[in-house]
Design a binder for these strands. Sequence first.
DNA 1: AATGCGTGTCATAAG
DNA 2: AGCTTATGACACGCA
Length: 492
Amino acid sequence: MCSAINGVLPLRISCEGLANPGRLHGEVSMSTNVTGFRAHRSPQHLDMDSAWQELMAITELQEFEVPNENPFEAIPYLSMEPMVSQGGFGMSQPQPESIPATCDAHPAAVYENAYPEMMPPYQRLNPHMDMHYSRPVPGGHGSSRMLANTQALHPPLMSLLEHMNMTTRSHGIAKDGVINLHCTGQIKQACTDDLESDSGLSLGSSPPLASPENAVHGVSSYLPADGTMGYAESESIGEQYRMRQSLFGSVDYQQSYSSYPGTSFPTTANMQPINQQTYQPIASLKQPVLPTAMHDLQLNSSGLTRLGAYQSMYPKPSSVPVPLNRDERRARTLKIPFSLDKIVNLPVDDFNELLTQFTLNDAQLALVRDIRRRGKNKVAAQNCRKRKLENIVHLENELGQLRAQREHLTRERLGFQQNLAIIKCRLSDLYTQVFSQLRDEEGHPYSVDEYSLQQTNDGNIYLVPRNTALESELTDVCFEKWKSPIVGQLNP
DNA sequence: AATGCGTGTCATAAG
DNA sequence: AGCTTATGACACGCA
C-alpha cells in the first residue's frame, strides 16, 4: 500500500446553504491541493476539524439522532477528530482527552453565554428562592419582579394579584340585617345575639374559657345612660362591611387593625405614653378603670360626656354609619379602654405596659388577648395568601420562560441537524473525491470500508486504514507508514 | 342549588 | 415560657 499521491486534489466543503452557518463561523472550506501529501490549512478558511468539533460538541450536547443515511456514517467522521499530536505522531496510548475545545465549557456556561436573557435573573444571581419570597417590600426587588412577570401572567392570577394589592382590606364578611340605630331594647337584645354569628367566623371553635364571648353575651350593649341612641349591636354587619369596603378602599395588611376611617380609635401614632397622660378620673364613671379612654375622650372630644368618650373611641353611629366587626363590637361591649389598633399593633412590651395601666377583668383581658391573637393571625393569613399567589405567579412565569427556552433550543437543534446533514453529504463527496484520485493515481481501489480520513492537530489529513481500528492504536510504526498526509495543501 | 372565591379564624408547628 | 409568624384546614358570605 502506498500512500503516495501526486497531483492536486481540489476539495471543497462549503457552508453555503447551511441552515445555521453562523454557528460554524463561516465557510467550511477544504479546497485541498494534494501535493506531496502535505496539508497546510489556509487561515482564512475554516478548518474541517473546527467545524467538526463544534458539530460534535453540539451533537453531543443535544443528543442528536440524525438519520444515518450516509454510507460513511459515524466512524469516518469521528476519525476526523484531532489525533492529539502530543509527542509528534508517536501516539501510542489512548487519548480520551481529545475533546473539542467547544466542549470544554460547562454546558451551563455555554447556555449562559448563549441565552443570557433566557436564564431567569434569580437563577443567575441567586439560587435561593427565599430571597424572592420574602416579605414584599414596596418598590423593592419583589415588586419589580412582580411587575416584570406580569406579562406571562395568566389573567385569573393577575386579577387575583391585583385584587390582593388593591383590595387587601376588603372584608367579605357580611351579615343579614338592617341598620337600626334607634333600636328598642328588644331589638337590641336580638342584635346582641348576633354577636356570635358574624360571617367568616368559625363560631364556637374558640375555647369558651379562652374567649370572653360568653361574657360578651352576658353584658348588655353599651348604651348611654339616657337611653337614647346607643351603639347597640343592631347594625347590619353586611351593610357595615359593604360600606366599609366602598368607603375605605385598600389598606395595607399591616394596617389591618389600624383605625378604620370613621372610627376614632387612637392610633399608635397619636398615643401618648401612659405616664404622660393626664388622667383625671371622672366620678360618674361606673367603671373607674378607663383612664385612657377618658383621656382619649378629653383629647378627641374635649369636654364631652361619657357618651362623647365612647363616641370618640368607637364609631359615631349617626354621622357616618361606621361598621364594626365582631371584635370591635365586643371591645365596645366590654368597654375595652383602648383601641384595637393598639391591641394588635403595639409591640409586646408596649402592649403589656398598656395592660398594666388599666385594671381589666378577666373577660376584658381574655378579649384583648384574643383580639391581639386574631388580629396578628389575620395579617399573617393575608400575608401568607399573598405570598402563595406570588409563588404561583412566579412559577407560571418560570414555566413560560422554560417553554420559550425549549422552543428556542428545538429550533436551534433543527438547524444544527440540517447543517450536519449537509456537512455529512459534503464530507461524503470529499471521501469520494479523495478515494477516486487515489485510485486513479495509485491504481489502488481505496474504499471507505478500508480507509478513513483523519486529521491531526497540525491540520494534516491522513488516510488511515480502518484495520488499525482507532487512531489510538496507531503506533509509531503505523504512523511511519501512514504519516504522510494524503490531502495536500489547502488552496485558498 | 351548586360552585368558586375571598376572608377570618383556629390549630399547630417552628423560630 | 411566652410571643410571633407561617400555614393548612375549616366555615362563612357573596357573586
